[in-house]
């Protein structure tokens, strides 16, 4: 795939914006060099982020292509605004019709295979952005598919009505505040063994599916997922990181990654994917005050539990008891980590 994923940066113009939920903005872009986006593809976006710090900095973010029309002349993305996210979402929400930004052509790390006997598409929350185009193609091909879409509340779930209209009974919605929570074990338990599952959603959901998939001894190659490394078991918190050998100490804000903070502090860091896949940014843990929030997909569960190394591009340190959704700010000192780097 590498050959087709060479980034071609180009200008794109915003041609439409609309709020699809309170926190999700639909943005339609017209790229200067249109290319058709296959299901599962995403674009990378460069943004100048003046809001995150005093100094302007260039942010690079990845967004799934929800819809590609006119052979890629209209690319729709949808951006979830998370105050504690990596900062890009605020700038994206500020975009207005006529604004321009730098984007790549559609990049593909999550291809949909045509011709599987049956499919389960599983989306949690904003993960629907990576899944919606797959569902549309499978419907057009008259494939055997089910689209499972889970969210907190109907109002939080982007495109739910449109998807219900398009997919009818093939869409199964699980909505927490309506008491129809998704039971991963029963969904995975009911799968025919030759099903291909494509999923995108919060890490708890994906970890749970992975665990159930392994327990059922289903073919690991049929479990497909995409992660941009921005979902964890804990809400992002501020923490400190120290590299004694280099005399470097940095505070990692909730909207920054440890890798970014260490780069800012002058450490010469190795990395590549910056989304918790490749493992090149791994650092050794010397001491820990708090819990590691592994957000990568590089380490196995065994390696994550051992907590000897972490992928600093996405993984974080949280205060124990600071699980996502739990009350924050116990008033104690910041969680911290002491590491050694290559």
């Amino acid at each position: 795939m590498a050959a087709t994923n060479i980034e071609v940066w180009q200008q794109a113009t915003v041609v439409e914006t609309a709020a699809v939920t309170e926190q999700i903005q639909r943005i339609v872009l017209r790229p200067d060099l249109p290319r058709r986006a296959d299901p599962g593809s995403h674009i990378d976006v460069k943004l100048l982020n003046g809001a995150a710090s005093l100094q302007d900095e260039v942010l690079k973010r990845s967004y799934s292509v929800v819809e590609s029309a006119d052979d890629g002349a209209r690319l729709t993305i949808s951006v979830f605004r998370a105050p504690s996210s990596r900062g890009g979402s605020l700038a994206m929400h500020a975009l207005r019709v006529g604004d321009t930004l730098q984007i790549t052509q559609p990049l593909q790390n999550f291809p949909l295979r045509i011709g599987a006997p049956r499919y389960l598409l599983l989306a949690g929350g904003i993960g629907i952005t990576a899944i919606a185009a797959m569902a549309r193609v499978l419907r057009e091909l008259h494939a055997d598919y089910t689209l499972v879409y889970a969210g907190r509340s109907r109002a939080d779930m982007a495109y739910l009505n449109e998807l219900q209209e398009l997919h009818g009974d093939r869409l199964v919605a699980h909505i927490n505040d309506e008491g129809t929570n998704l039971e991963v074990a029963s969904v995975v338990g009911a799968l025919a063994p030759d099903t291909e599952l494509y999923m995108c959603g919060p890490i708890r959901l994906m970890d749970s599916v992975r665990r159930n998939w392994l327990e059922r001894r289903l073919n690991p190659a049929n479990l497909r997922f995409e992660t941009f490394g921005n979902s964890g078991w804990y809400a992002p918190q501020e923490f400190t990181v120290r590299i004694p050998r280099l005399g470097i100490e940095a505070t990692v804000g909730p909207d920054r990654s440890m890798l970014e903070a260490l780069e800012d502090a002058g450490a010469d860091m190795m990395f590549d994917c910056r989304k918790g896949e490749c493992g090149l940014c791994e650092v050794r843990v010397l001491r820990l005050d708090g819990a590691i929030d592994h957000r990568d997909v590089f380490y196995s569960e065994r390696q994550q539990k051992a907590a000897e190394k972490i992928c600093c591009c996405v993984s974080r340190v949280a205060s124990v008891g600071g699980e996502a959704g739990a009350a924050q700010g116990s008033g104690q000192g910041l969680p911290s980590i002491v590491i050694e780097v290559p």
Binding site: M1, T4, N109, F110, P111, R113, P220, R224, F225, E226, T227, C273, E277, C278, G279, V297, F298, Y299, S300, R302, Q303
Partner: peptide, 13 residues
């Protein structure tokens, strides 16, 4: 060389 499979690891078929 690693305990997991990189989810991006595919070649076109």
């Amino acid at each position: 060389a690693q305990e997991t499979i990189n989810p991006s690891a595919t070649v076109p078929s």
